[in-house]
Structure formats: structure tokens, C-alpha cells
Write a protein that binds this DNA or RNA. Structure first.
Length: 562
RNA sequence: GUCCCAGUAGCUCAGCUGGAUAGAGCAACAGCCUUCUAAGCUGUGGGUCGGGAGUUCGAAUCUCUCCUGGGACGCCA
């Protein structure tokens, strides 16, 4: 069985008078260094009970211990009881497990086929897909895949920002300065220019903002010309976004944006009124939330609705259509308050499913220590960054592997891999200072490093004419042990990533495994020794499988050659 | 002003529910390709874990306080 439970059983034998199994289980830790063993039990807490020094307790425990086959050795060091796993047995068991389960290795069934909706990416129509939206897109995509790996049925929702006063402003700008031909040729960049120009002009002329609001009112009232322009901008934007999603390998089950909920908000307001939750305050309608939070604004003084109203309608709609057990919102850090309010309002409305809602926040993409601003045109376009990355990857390939087929495809995989990995490798709540240089780095702890390791493993399997077999795996290389430990840890890494909604757990995992493999590769000639070749290739194959699967969970492809 | 998040090596960051001499990568320097992909491997140097106090056998980790940076705080999304 599980190594840890086996160790608990051994300890329980001697310590049952003072500690129960679950307590023991929580006390066991992983030693800092591999040389100290595989599992450790600290004896410091027992010092008081036994009135002896931790060192002596460890020594006595060790002396009296009867080890099952799973363990090879036990040592008492500095007040710790350290056990060493039986390397050959564990190695063979782990490799065979990975080989037999293939890409299903590491699956953990937490979800039981329940539905999890994931609201992510959600760019604003008629604005460029900026670096800021990259974060939500790649984090959400990874979480969807991780959730599926954990047995959930993931529904990917792109909650497009396709409604609001901004469209009124854009229509004003277009009617004043727009050129149909230019917009058709290069929709996003032209629309951005118009948007920026509008804000510059509005600083001089306040009346422009009023005009914008008027046009938005027309849009809400169903004015034909306004709707025509709106749906044109929406279509063009969507096409641009699709290009980026294809490049990144991201897809959605629903692209209902905010506009979709226009006719679903009356019901929400009605429900709120029925439950007597709606209060008037400064001529606006709000829901008051106890605690210390400010009230949630539902309706403006002029009777129009807000972001929160639409999000309420969306949450209810999603529960009705998908019957989700969990629902994630992958939206920036700065909206924490909004989601706290939203969830509390839903709780007050009596929806039990509010417990499954979670705001998966992330830090901002900063430029010179500050937030990037679309209004001032200070944006970095994701498409440009991706294209830079792909070009750089291509240059590398031409230089390093000139005979490679399908250079363009591999360049795409490696370039986007670098950008995605750079975003996912650190904890999501950290802010990221935008740095093209960092993002396009292909050496060290990067996506291409992991991809390269995968390609190396694939290459060796090709060169060694690897055939799968059911023969016993027998690994005796000491250098292989850290690979085995990492392979063993894969399911736990997935669990950590899911539970913390934290893709960086997978990124870190995959880096550790790649490092361990490269170290092994540097010290052991895998194909030279006929006797060990098949076992070693089995090890290489397990690594290849797990790297491939780990990268896939992050939304990164793993080329077999690069 | 109130609330939230962060402060670890020159830079970017790990460090799980407190535990053994604080770890990586980048950058710097020194090595390793007639032999499995050098996008790799090996080695060297570099840290008062923002400051102070407390809890504890033990604190980068928990509590308090101060400093610094960022963010949010009703008619935007």
C-alpha cells in the first residue's frame, strides 16, 4: 500500500499508548535531503511525554522497529527516525504503474463526474487581447484540464465583456473618425486607435462622454444602427480572439457574454424583491451585506443595471443549465470585493450551491510597476508577444536542429510553451512585471527546458528501438532514485494543484522531474549497457509519459523532436 | 481613513498544515560535445528570510506592532 501508511503502522506498534494513527500520519514529513531518507518522523513532541531527549527516543524506536519489505533501512538522526524505501521494489512498482496507466497515470477521482464551470479569459470586445488577459486564459485553461484529471466534467465559459457604456463611446468614435475599410483590414488595432482617440478627445470635450452614454442608451433600447455596429465590432473581435485561442490551444463550451444576460436580470431583481433583500439607498437599489462589507449595488439611480446584476443572473443561469457542483471565476485580484459580495448575495437568496463558488484571483501584469491602461493605449498585445516568441523559437531550431521537419509547428509549440509556462510557474497571486526578455527565455526553469527534456526522452526511445514489454523492470542505478520519487509524487502534485486551484504546482512538479531526468541522462549512458537497457528505457518512457501529461495539464504541447 | 495582498541571494522566485546546515533558475566565474539532442550537465562565489517584540524544545513559516510597495473601497467592468 501507500508508503506513508506503512510507516504509520510501524510507528503505531510502539506508540499506540500516546498517539493515534491520524496524528502519526500528520506528523510524518519528507526529509530535506534525499540522503536523509524518504520519510521522517520527528520525536520532539514525545520528549515531554517520555521525559527523554528526542535523540534517545529516536534511537530506541529505531532499535525496536520491525521493518516490512517496503523499507530497506532505518536510521536515528538528530531526533528524527528516518526510513529508506526499498529502492528496487518501489522503482519497479512505480514504473510499471506509470507504463500501464499511460496518460491516465495520476488521475485522482475527487470530482465523481460532477460539473465544474470555469469562467475564464473573458476579454472585452473591441479591445485588443492584451497581456493582462493572458493570465486568466492560461490559468483557467490549466484549471479546466486539472479538474478533468480529477474526475470533474469541466465546462469552459468565456464570459465576454460585450456590453456597457464603452460601446456607446466606441460608436461615437467610429461615426466621427472611423474608416470602414481600415477597420475591416485590421479590426482590433483600428478599434483600439479609435478608443484611445476618444479618451484623448474626451479630456478636452466633456460632451463626448455624454454622447457615448446616449449611444449606449440607444443600444439598450434596440436602435438599429447602434445594434448593427455593435454586432459588427463583436464579430470582428471574436474572429481576432479565435486566432489567439487557436494559437494557445484553448477552447470554450460557451461564449455567452454579458449581453446574453440582458433579458435575464428582471427575474433576478424580482427574486431579490420577493425575498425582501432589495433596499433603496441614495435612489439606487442595493442589497445590504452584514459583516463589514459595503452593500452590493444592483440598480443605478437611472434604473439601469450593473456588473453585479449581470453576474447574479449569470450564476443562476449556470446553475440552472449545468447543475454545477463547483464554479470557478478566474478573474483578477482587484475584483475580490466584487466576488465576495456576489457570493454573499447568492447565499442570502438561499441558494445552497453558493458553497461551490470560488473566485480564483491572480496578480496583475504590471508595466514599470504599474497597471497597464487600455485607455491610454499603453497595452502590449498578446498576439505580438506570441509571434515574437514563435520567431525566436524558429531561429533556435534553425540554428540547433536544422534538419528538423515541421519547423514551424515545433516553433509554435515551443514559443507558446515559453509564454504559457512563464505565466504559470509562479503562484498566481503574485504580480508579474512584464518583461519580454524573461518571457522569451528558453533556458533554465522554463517551458522549453521541460519540452526539451521530453524531446530528449523521446529521442532516446527512438534510438534505442524501445518496445513495450511486460518483463520485470529492474533499476539499480542510484542516480535513478530521484526520478522515481518524482514519478511517485505525480498524483499528489495534481491533488495540490486542484485543491489550491494552483497550476504552478504542476509547473514546479514538471520542472523537478525534468531536472532529475537530465541529471540522470548526464551520468548514465542509457543505451550502452545491454543488460539494463530495457529497464532503463522503461524508466525513460515513464518520464516521457508524465512530462507529456504534466505539460498537457498546463496547456502546453510536448514535441517529440525540437 | 478602512480592508485585502505582498516584502527571502544582484534579478525572478520555491520553501505544504512551525522542525534537521534557508533552496532553485537567471546573471558572474571555471569546467564538460570524434560517444543516447550542449534549449543540457558539473563546480565556485553570493542571504541580518523588511525592522522590532511575543508564543514555542524549535519560527522564513503562527500572533502583535511598525516600515515599504501594490490593490480594493456604491451608481465602470
Amino acid at each position: 500500500m501507500d508508503n506513508k501508511t506503512a510507516f504509520v503502522d510501524v510507528l503505531y506498534d510502539q506508540l499506540k499508548d500516546h498517539l493515534d494513527k491520524s496524528k502519526l500520519n500528520s506528523m510524518i514529513e519528507k526529509p530535506k535531503k534525499e540522503s536523509m531518507g524518504d520519510l521522517a518522523f520527528p520525536c520532539f513532541e514525545l520528549a515531554k511525554v517520555y521525559r527523554k531527549s528526542p535523540q534517545n527516543i529516536a534511537l530506541e524506536l529505531t532499535k525496536e522497529m520491525t521493518l516490512p519489505n517496503l523499507f530497506q533501512n532505518v536510521e536515528a538522526v538528530n531526533g528524527y527516525v528516518n526510513v529508506f524505501l526499498n529502492k528496487e521494489e518501489v522503482s519497479s512498482y512505480t514504473i510499471q504503474k506509470a507504463l500501464s496507466k499511460k496518460e491516465n497515470y495520476g488521475n485522482v477521482n475527487i470530482g465523481n463526474k460532477g460539473v465544474i464551470t470555469i469562467d475564464f479569459s473573458s476579454p472585452n470586445i473591441a479591445k485588443p487581447f492584451s497581456m493582462g488577459h493572458l493570465r486568466s486564459t492560461v490559468i483557467g485553461n490549466a484549471l479546466a484540464r486539472i479538474s478533468e484529471k480529477c474526475g470533474y466534467n469541466a465546462i469552459r465559459i468565456n464570459h465576454l465583456g460585450d456590453w456597457g457604456t464603452q460601446f456607446g463611446k466606441l460608436i461615437v468614435a467610429y461615426t466621427l473618425w472611423g474608416d470602414e475599410q481600415k477597420v475591416k483590414e485590421n479590426p482590433i488595432k483600428e478599434l483600439l486607435k479609435l478608443y484611445v482617440r476618444f479618451h484623448e478627445a474626451a479630456e478636452q470635450d466633456e460632451k463626448l462622454n455624454d454622447k457615448g452614454r446616449q449611444w449606449f442608451k440607444k443600444l439598450e433600447d434596440g436602435d438599429e444602427r447602434a445594434l448593427e455596429l455593435w454586432s459588427w465590432f463583436r464579430e470582428e473581435s471574436l474572429q481576432e480572439f479565435t486566432k489567439i485561442y487557436e494559437l494557445l490551444g484553448v477552447n470554450f463550451d460557451s461564449t455567452h457574454g454579458e449581453a446574453f444576460y440582458n433579458d435575464k436580470m428582471d427575474r433576478v431583481i424580482q427574486l431579490l424583491e420577493e425575498k425582501k433583500l432589495l433596499k433603496e439607498s441614495d435612489q439606487a437599489k442595493v442589497v445590504e451585506i452584514d459583516d463589514d462589507l459595503p452593500p452590493c449595488l444592483i440598480k443605478k439611480r437611472d434604473g439601469t443595471t450593473l456588473y453585479a446584476t449581470r453576474d447574479l443572473a449569470a450564476a443562476i443561469y449556470r446553475q440552472d443549465t449545468y447543475k454545477f457542483v463547483r464554479s470557478l471565476y478566474v478573474v483578477g485580484n482587484e475584483q475580490t470585493l466584487h466576488f465576495k459580495q456576489l457570493f454573499l448575495v447568492l447565499e442570502k437568496m438561499g441558494y445552497k450551491w453558493h458553497k461551490g463558488l470560488k473566485h480564483v484571483a491572480f496578480g496583475m501584469m504590471l508595466k514599470d510597476g504599474k497597471k497597464m491602461s487600455t485607455r491610454k493605449g499603453k497595452v502590449v498585445l498578446l498576439e505580438d508577444v506570441l509571434n515574437d516568441a514563435i520567431t525566436l523559437a524558429k531561429n533556435n531550431i534553425v540554428e540547433k536542429n536544422p534538419t528538423l521537419d515541421s519547423k514551424d509547428n515545433v516553433a509554435r509549440q515551443v514559443g507558446t510553451g515559453a509564454v504559457i509556462f512563464h505565466d504559470l510557474k509562479n503562484y498566481r497571486l503574485n504580480d508579474i512585471e512584464f518583461s519580454l526578455e524573461d518571457m522569451l527565455r528558453f533556458e533554465g526553469e522554463t517551458g522549453p527546458y521541460v519540452q526539451y527534456t521530453h524531446a530528449r526522452a523521446s529521442s532516446i526511445l527512438r534510438k534505442g528501438d524501445y518496445q513495450e514489454s511486460n518483463d520485470d523492470v529492474n533499476i539499480s542505478d542510484v542516480e535513478a532514485w530521484s526520478i522515481i520519487i518524482n514519478l511517485l509524487d505525480f498524483p499528489d502534485a495534481i491533488k495540490r494543484a486542484y485543491e489550491g486551484s494552483d497550476p504552478s504546482q504542476i509547473a514546479k512538479y514538471v520542472l523537478e522531474l525534468a531536472k532529475a531526468f537530465n541529471k540522470y541522462y548526464g551520468s548514465v549512458r542509457i543505451l550502452d549497457d545491454k543488460e539494463h537497457k530495457q529497464s532503463r528505457l522503461s524508466l525513460v518512457h515513464s518520464v516521457q509519459i508524465v512530462l507529456n501529461e504534466g505539460l498537457r495539464l498546463l496547456g502546453i504541447e510536448a514535441p517529440n523532436e525540437m
